[in-house]
Design a protein around this nucleic acid. Structure first.
Lengths: 341, 341
DNA sequence: GTGAAAGCGCTAACAG
DNA sequence: CTGTTAGCGCTTTCAC
């Protein structure tokens, strides 16, 4: 199948190149008869327009990029990123965009990738995952003027568009649930202090406690890094302070905590209640079903793509902000059922 | 930063467009002085070539596609795919290629994606994951003449290039290990019968047993689908036949089996030994450390990209085949340490 | 409604 | 070693 060109199709259907281009792009000004004729020869020849030529002429590539900074090996142990990738990929398909995936694992990666991404021609826009404080990538992207949407709240409060879930409220609700259940010494295992998710979920915890006039006991807050192991160690660090409930900033850390609780000879939720965050499908999850905050990752991804396309088509001003609400999924680990008996 | 063109750089450095093109593409025929001058103005202006124009003129996009067929929601619960994506992405970076990711979840997806992928202009080549029997995608890709490498052994024994791990031998070695340990009733939980991985690993099991003159007891083979749940049910189905060891075609299924064993009141490895397959990092893994076959996913990915680039540069003939060896990682679940006491 | 013509920004012979 | 000249395959005014 030698690659056909517009020219070929034009000749075969006895019209001009422009006309074929019009029917391919669904322009209104084509008579029905001609349209059908052209469509026929396109179908019968299996013609598809050359993407590069089209991009060059139209300044649109119909491809968007997904940038994942700091993608060290461990990043894919967290179920969040596969899920995000899948969501973005699906949303792209939906809107007839292709997806370019850029995993940035190091400074060199960033240097290699940045030119490809920032310079127009390959990508119409990018969605970039928020990373840690002081990460210059997002600022560089802003400077490059490429249509941009940040997945997650960016650390710097720039005039960027972003889509995020309402982490503060989500954590607030989770902890409030624990308070309502009557727990007195509610601890939290946070995410990394440099990450916005970590910060926001901790803030929600703090706010829920403060609002009921509880003092915040610093010994009841331990930092984790979203890994199972960190949850395990955090829980061990918490144990001497005798928490009766723990809000973990991710399910995986909650499972780590659960393991620590079990090894210490205590039971979840009887001795220590546990609430997690994510509710993403995990390959295997031991112990009692986890009460957790459900993140709408799929809607989140769709929204990010929608916003980006909106920016591509209508410009970046004003910056768009969308905050998605979460849902507390009450299962057994928080002891709600226990208490209701 | 208005997008600069080759022309601009040429004017600014007082040379012709071709010369700039030459230094950008590292052609040898440029004098040192000129090269430096041009490089300087490129650096100072922050110029980057337009990818679309370059592709159009050179018939090379420096982008390859990764196609994942049948990417239903559950596919990302398996740690294999994230790992594969990461490996491919890294290898692409290494070789200065970009990566286009195409998740194909349905027939409509395939129809949408196929033209974008098959028609030259966007992609220089694709690596496609093997799916199930009767999947026409790979054949369609072959027909389209796009440089292609299959990740995993394709079902149809076409003249395709592929990279695979030696599943038969891997399974053979795992089961042989169990035989050497003295187990008499060795069962297996296979992958889906339509998948080549499933078929090959089962064949290795069969071969190991046959070679020692063991009869294959059909009640000791149960099919799973690589999910934890399927491993759990498979083990329950196996229990009445009293296996003393089980080879599961994936770690996740092994964990499911472990759960079933535990619930039945038995212990791993004391009552039933367990060997898995994959050795990929899982967020949380209960029970005794799993003896398993380690898949070299990263090398595998690198190899797939290397082979694809080789094909892009040197043609698809003859078809390349690479088979990677695996390693049996002996931990506790197989009872090797127990038996050595 | 349709065609002609001028690019989009770059590469790649071909001269010199 | 360097510049000139054609395109690559498509979109997009602008006439008709």
């Amino acid at each position: 199948m030698p690659d056909l060109t517009l020219e070929d199709i034009a000749r075969l259907s006895g019209v001009s190149r422009s006309t074929v281009s019009r029917v391919v792009n669904e322009h209104p000004n084509v008579s029905e008869g001609v349209r059908e004729r052209v469509l026929d020869t396109i179908k019968s020849t299996g013609y598809h327009p050359n993407v590069a030529a089209r991009s060059l002429a139209s300044h649109r590539s119909w491809m968007i990029g997904l940038l994942l900074p700091h993608s060290v090996s461990s990043i894919f142990i967290d179920p969040y990123f596969p899920q995000l990738i899948q969501g973005i990929a699906q949303a792209c398909n939906q809107r007839d965009y292709s997806l370019g995936l850029f995993l940035i694992g190091s400074r060199e990666d960033e240097e290699k990738i940045f030119p490809r991404v920032s310079r127009r021609g390959m990508l119409d826009g990018v969605v970039v995952q928020t990373g840690h404080h002081g990460e210059p990538l997002i600022d560089r992207l802003i400077e490059s003027m490429i249509p941009l949407v940040v997945a997650g709240r960016p650390n710097s409060s720039e005039k960027v568009s972003y889509v995020d879930i309402d982490n503060v409220n989500a954590a607030y609700n989770a902890v409030s649930h624990l308070i309502r259940l009557g727990y007195k010494r509610i601890a939290t295992i946070t995410g990394p202090a440099e990450s916005t998710v970590g910060i926001d979920r901790k803030e929600g915890y703090r706010r829920a406690l403060a609002e009921r006039g509880r003092t915040i006991d610093p010994s009841l807050t331990v930092e984790g890094d979203f890994t199972e192991t960190s949850g395990y160690y955090a829980m061990n660090a918490l144990l001497p302070s005798h928490p009766d409930a723990v809000f973990a900033a991710s399910d995986i850390m909650a499972y780590g905590a659960m393991r620590a609780v079990r090894e210490a000879g205590h039971k979840v939720p009887d001795d220590i209640a546990l609430v997690g965050f994510d509710d993403l499908p995990l390959p295997n999850s031991p112990g009692p079903p986890l009460t957790t905050v459900r993140q709408p990752v799929m809607q989140f991804s769709t929204s990010a793509v929608e916003v980006l396309i909106d920016i591509i088509e209508n410009g970046a001003d004003p910056p768009r902000r969308v905050l998605m609400t979460t849902e507390l999924i009450v299962r057994e680990s928080c002891g709600a059922y226990l208490r209701h008996k």
